[in-house]
Design a protein around this nucleic acid. Sequence first.
DNA 1: TCAAGTGTATTATTATGTATAGTACACTTG
DNA 2: CAAGTGTACTATACATAATAATACACTTGA
Lengths: 131, 131
Amino acid sequence: MYFNIDPRKNTPLYEQIIHQVKEMCAKGILLPNEKLPSVRELSSQMVINPNTVSKAYQELERQGVIVTIRGRGTFISEEFHQTYDPRLVEKLKQSLKQMIIDSHYAGISKEELTEWIEKVYEEMGGNSDEN
Amino acid sequence: MYFNIDPRKNTPLYEQIIHQVKEMCAKGILLPNEKLPSVRELSSQMVINPNTVSKAYQELERQGVIVTIRGRGTFISEEFHQTYDPRLVEKLKQSLKQMIIDSHYAGISKEELTEWIEKVYEEMGGNSDEN
DNA sequence: TCAAGTGTATTATTATGTATAGTACACTTG
DNA sequence: CAAGTGTACTATACATAATAATACACTTGA
């Protein structure tokens, strides 16, 4: 279980945890029903506050990525859980648009961007419904 | 000059202004040497603090998108200004990866995502160096 | 010349989100 | 029953965002 968080980044620690868990699930590094480190264990590993880890886990459970069982621990959900939220979709569209524009200003061509996307999907493999 | 900002969004107001200006430039809605609303004018239009607009303009100038002239006003830069910053590129890659994963969890297929991207580039037209 | 309109700088204040600290509770396992 | 789970709660510290109120330097045009 290799988490890599950076307090210097502008993105909050709890969001970094959320992102990494979802990424590892999407890539098949974390498998369904697999146990995650406990709140206290992960917090001491990362040298951050347990409350921060707890906040991340609670949001991950809200999104259906993980399942927590009192007294036992937290586990990756048995099945991949998609959420069709129109507002979320709209947010994603906006983020994508902004990212393309920023890339444009950074001198990144459409072709380069497309390559990046291909690589990400390759890393995710065919894991469309295996977690 | 139609700006559309939303105080309820989690993204800061000054960032929303930055995004919109860059988007309008990329789409050719704002043209080189075109004058932007003054700090006081835009702030009263948006019913926000002049300092917030000023902050956005200063960042836009730092990025080379606009040029400000004391006593005259702020204008869109004469030439399109790309900045090759390796750190920025890395940030964009990370953002893209995260956005793809979030899209995956939102039930958006690779094909849909590709369509979105195509649309954004269509809206930007062939404006690779016309601002 | 001078009033009005530019961007800019400064200081203070408020609100919000993030993270930490410490404690306590309910539950499960061995 | 002890140890390990997640959870809840209050308090505190800190950084950022936004506002408020002034003041300054500059340009333009009447």
